[in-house]
Design a binder for these strands. Structure first.
Lengths: 90, 90
DNA sequence: TTGACATGCAACCATTGGGTTGCCTATATT
DNA sequence: AATATAGGCAACCCAATGGTTGCATGTCAA
C-alpha cells in the first residue's frame, strides 16, 4: 500500500522492483488487498495495473479507531472535570 | 479491548467470564496489549485491574488511516476537478 | 494456619502467514 | 514464427500465532 501510495497504478513487476520479495509474494499481498477491496486492478494488455482504492478505509477507522478515539476524548474530558472539581474543593 | 471498553478496570477473571478462551489465552492478549501500551494495569491485593489506555491509538491512526484518509480526500477532489474540466470542454 | 482463589510461568500443539521454487499461459516484440 | 516478457497456479517450507494443559506462587478469609 505504501508503495502504491507513492505512485499509483503500478504494474506488478514495477512494484516488485521496490520490494524485497519474490514476485509471487507480492502477488499474494495484492490478492488479499484486492479481496479486501483496498486495491483495484485494470488489465492493460499483458500488464496488470494496481490502484489504491481509497474508500473502504473508513470502515477500518470506524471499527478500530473511531470507537476508541471517542473514548480517548471522553477520558480527557473526565480528567479535566476531575481537575476542576479538585480545584473547587480548595 | 472491546470487553474493557464496555466496562473498564476489570480483573483478569472477570474478563475471562465474557470471553470464550482459557484464562492463559486471555493473559497472553493482555500481556501484548500492555507491551503495546494499550492497556494499563494496577494490582489491588491479589487482583490485577486492567484499564484501557486511550492515548496511543493516535499513532495507529496516523500510520494506517490518516495517511490514506488524506489520500482519499485528494482522490475525491481530483475526481471533482476532472469532472469540472470535462464540463468546461463542452 | 489452612484452604480457596487470583494470577503467573513454561512446555507443548495445531493452524495460519508469509515466503519460496518450479512450471504454465498469454501477450508483445523482432 | 520465435523469443522475451508479464503474470498465474500449485506445492512446499518454516516461523509465528493463538490456543491449550499442568504446575507454582502469592494473597485473602475462616
Amino acid at each position: 500500500m505504501d508503495q502504491l501510495h507513492t505512485s499509483n497504478g503500478q504494474t506488478l513487476s514495477e512494484l516488485c522492483e521496490h520490494l524485497d520479495m519474490t514476485r509471487q509474494a507480492v502477488t499474494k499481498h495484492l490478492v488479499i488487498l484486492e479481496e479486501a477491496n483496498l486495491v483495484a486492478t485494470v488489465w492493460r494488455g499483458r500488464e496488470k495495473l494496481h490502484y489504491l482504492n481509497p474508500m473502504p478505509l473508513h470502515e477500518i477507522y470506524e471499527r478500530w479507531i473511531g470507537k476508541y478515539e471517542r473514548y480517548r476524548l471522553r477520558a480527557l474530558s473526565d480528567l479535566k472535570k476531575g481537575l476542576e472539581e479538585k480545584n473547587h474543593e480548595r
